[in-house]
Amino acid sequence: MFDSIFKRALLVAIVTDAVDFLFHFFFTNPMESLTYFVIKFLLAFTVATGLFSWRSYSQRSKKILIIFITGLIFSTLMSAYYRAWELGEARVPFGSRAPDIIGITRYSIMFSLVWWLGHATFFSIGAWLAWRIIKQKG
């Protein structure tokens, strides 16, 4: 019914949201809103569709690296959205939207890296699973 690209992208979005939710639940405060997870789901689905639609992807040998770079792009786009929201719409201080991470000082380089690399990792996990579970036809 649905082609493999759609299935893979859907699996990527589900896994990305699920892992991100667990991360927020156990390691951050406060919990994020439903809107946040919906946006993340849609963005992960879109980026994953682009990844698996990329014709050169199936021909590349370093798929895992490509997956992780795609994850960094996904994370960058997600951060860009909320920074734009802070400055352009809510008119609140830069970075104030992000929840606290337990054990990490806010407004430090480590704080930014954990968010950026963490979201990229969540996406990469989903993409790797989709690549391993759902075989691309054609």
């Binding site: 406060p30 919990m31 802070e86 809510a90 104030s96």
Partner: peptide
């Protein structure tokens, strides 16, 4: 009911 518009879970 009220909330924080920056952090809606508050």
């Amino acid at each position: 009911n009220y909330y924080c518009s920056i952090h809606p879970s508050m």
